[in-house]
Design a protein around this nucleic acid. Sequence first.
DNA 1: ATAATTGCAAATGCTTTGCTTGTGA
DNA 2: TCACAAGCAAAGCATTTGCAATTAT
Lengths: 136, 136
Amino acid sequence: MTNAIEKKCAKRGLRLTDQRKLVAKVMSESEDHPDVYELHKRVSKLDSKISIATVYRTVKLFEEAGIVAKHDFKGTKARYEQTTDEHHDHLIDINTGEITEFVNEDIEKLQKEVAEKLGYKLVDHRLELYGSKIKK
Amino acid sequence: MTNAIEKKCAKRGLRLTDQRKLVAKVMSESEDHPDVYELHKRVSKLDSKISIATVYRTVKLFEEAGIVAKHDFKGTKARYEQTTDEHHDHLIDINTGEITEFVNEDIEKLQKEVAEKLGYKLVDHRLELYGSKIKK
DNA sequence: ATAATTGCAAATGCTTTGCTTGTGA
DNA sequence: TCACAAGCAAAGCATTTGCAATTAT
């Protein structure tokens, strides 16, 4: 069984070790944004021998290959998610830590305009909203 | 000579030690976004005995009192700046590290709308643009 | 075959903290 | 006076790395 991440690795010529396959599998099946410790915990269920150093190395490798995205949300450790086709930003629940993804083309466009007005070509950005759930 | 930071400390009942006065002075006079190491270097010129631990503690204290803002830009250590009256966001030059501040009310408004549409009250946000200078 | 990868433990870099001495209000 | 702050060195935490053994191609 080959998942999307494995396919991307192959395409990029990354050597597919058992450990990398397992990290790929776990990330492919994750719906959330796990940190390295959590990833290691999940992968350990499939291979109790895998080292957390390998998870760190793998996740960094995947990130450099554009296969996963790393997020440093305020006050938390680095979290990872599989890269998707369309770009999205994040809203973080300040009470529960729950993360909601969203897309807003108007904001995207305005960011580009702001950068250009300041004499810059927009290369990357970071937009995070922090909020608390409205109870109704 | 009393600067804005010292005034805020007084208003909040923070004890004004010599070291805190010096950090306040240096931050008040800084036009950039120094990290703790840089702050310690600048303060050391005024008091060669000050410990970097004290700078860490002071900067954290000021942050918790809303007197300075902490920024964790991508790939850099924590940087600090004096809090200003109007909110602003940052554009970071990916080549030089130079930081430009900007305000965009349209984006602010859209962020709030996005949060509300998702059922959240917007409490805080983080918007950073990363770009490279357009040479003309 | 052999260059790349792993596991382990030690090292790193930034930040915090325990403890004793010093000090601002 | 005396609760709070500073200085120092040690500890903490997430992450990286050197090295010998292992493995994918």
